[in-house]
């Protein structure tokens, strides 16, 4: 399939978005968003990890390979890591990975990282809304994706 053909967006297409969320902050923020009945699109699937530093960049590659259209890694704000320093390593790893993916032709909007605390339910919802909006605009990801 040429890139031109790939540009075609199937009818009723909905993006699949994967969010790796730190158990201590963003996952709790998502719970709080639920508790407050905040609405956001159904496209997001959350995977719980103990810390954003548990997220191996290879998981991101795998997600794109298997057909995810956008990936978010979310952890505690710098200085607030439940495990003291995990998010500082996350920051280094993904600053590099994001640029590397971009260099390989993956739009940086498809792979983002955010700091969202357990109290920031609103920020969690807004991030989901923004992410879905951006990914919808970009259309389905076919780069790195396994042909089915």
């Amino acid at each position: 399939m040429s890139l031109e053909e790939q540009k075609q967006v199937p009818e009723n297409w909905e993006p699949t978005i994967l969010a790796f969320c730190c158990n201590w902050c963003t996952y709790a923020g998502a719970d709080l968003a639920g508790l407050n009945r905040m609405k956001y699109p159904e496209n997001v699937r959350i995977l719980r990890v103990p810390c954003s530093s548990r997220v191996n960049p290879q998981f991101i590659l795998r997600a794109f390979q298997k057909g995810v259209d956008g990936v978010l890694v979310a952890g505690c704000h710098p200085g607030d890591c439940h495990y003291v320093s995990g998010n500082y390593f996350t920051r280094r790893r993904f600053l590099l990975m994001q640029r590397f993916l971009e260099y390989n032709g993956i739009d940086p909007r498809r792979f983002q990282a955010r700091w969202i605390s357990g109290a920031e339910a609103g920020k969690f919802r807004d991030t989901m809304l923004q992410l879905c909006e951006e990914i919808k605009e970009l259309g389905p990801n076919r780069k790195l994706r396994e042909v089915k």
């Binding site: 995977l47 103990p50 548990r54 191996n56 998981f59 795998r62 298997k66 057909g67 995810v68």
Partner: peptide
Amino acid sequence: FTNLQILEEVDALC
């Protein structure tokens, strides 16, 4: 939260 488990989760998601 093993590597295998997270990879399986990602696969299952798609």
